Structures are given as C-alpha cells and as structure tokens.
Amino acid sequence: MKTPVLGCVFGILAAAFIGAVQARDDGHYSLSPLKPWFDSLRSAKGPCCSDADGFAVLDPDWESKSGHYRVRIDNEWIDVPDDAVITEPNRAGRAMVWPIKGSLGISIRCFMPGSMT
C-alpha cells in the first residue's frame, strides 16, 4: 500500500541527487529527519501529502510573476492557485509541487517555492 507522506520525503531526498523526480513510497526514508516536517505541510487546500505525491522542481521549471507562481509539469506550464502555496519556510531548499492528475488535467494541491539558487 502506498503511503503518500513517505513518498513526499523520498521525493525531496531523491531530487537532491537526480533533479526532478516523481516521489513514490518504498518506505526507504521513513526515518528521515524531515519526515515530521513533511507530514505537517499544508496549503489552504489541505494536507499536501494526503492526496498527492510531491516532487522537487528544478529552478527553470517554476517561476514567480506579479506575485503568482506557475510550474512546468509534463512540459506544460500550470498556474499555481494562491491557496495552494505553502507559506512556511522551505526546509528542503528545492521548490516542491504536489500535483493531482485527473480527467480534467493537472491541478496543484500544494506548491512550495524554492530558493532559486
């Protein structure tokens, strides 16, 4: 059974090594010191890891313009709803997105801007 929270932790750690990587839970990072922090992440849409696996986004694949964010997923730029933005400090450093793919396309559950370094 897939546990999305662990998938989120895996996504951050794997992304540090190989760029934008889709998070999938294999239980490997259940003891990560960032796990409690990922468990607590929420946007106004709700808990980030409850319905969607997150993944790190490379700097060229997200941007801020006029106070709003957008992110490139599957070569498509998607506007991030303001209520999907996580406003607490980013402990992971990299931009993260939690998309939900449905019959009407991709929606963003949560987005956490990175440092763009």
Rank of each mutant, 00 (worst) to 15 (best):
P60W: 09
D74K: 05
R94T: 11
D25W: 12
G46S: 04
C8Y: 01
S115K: 15
G27V: 06
W98I: 04
S66I: 09
C49I: 06
G93Q: 07
L104K: 15
P60G: 06
L31M: 08
M116G: 09
G27L: 07
S115F: 03
E88C: 08
N90C: 07
D61I: 02
S50V: 04
D83V: 03
E88Q: 14
A56E: 11
D25H: 12
V57H: 02
G54N: 03
K2H: 13
R42Y: 08
I18P: 04
V9Y: 02
W77A: 03
P89D: 07
R24Q: 11
S107L: 13
A56H: 02
L41A: 00
I73Q: 01
G19V: 01
S66L: 13
K101L: 13
P113F: 00
E76N: 15
E76L: 14
D59F: 06
S30Q: 11
S32D: 11
W37P: 02
C110Q: 00
A20C: 06
R24V: 14
M1D: 09
V71P: 05
R94K: 13
A15S: 15
R72F: 00
V85H: 00
V97E: 01
M112F: 03
K35A: 15
Y69M: 08
V57Y: 00
D74C: 01
C8H: 04
W77N: 14
E63I: 01
S50G: 06
I100H: 02
W37R: 04
S32M: 09
Q22E: 15
F17S: 08
E76R: 15
R94H: 13
L31Q: 13
W77F: 12
K35I: 13
G93W: 13
C110H: 02
L58E: 12
G46R: 11
S103T: 15
V97T: 01
M96V: 12
F111G: 00
P81M: 06
I108L: 05
L34G: 02
G27C: 08
G19Q: 10
D74A: 12
I12H: 03
T3D: 14
S40Y: 08
R70I: 00
I78V: 15
V57L: 02
K2F: 13
A15T: 03
P33G: 09
V5S: 04
H28R: 07
I78P: 12
R72W: 06
W98H: 03
G27A: 04
P36G: 04
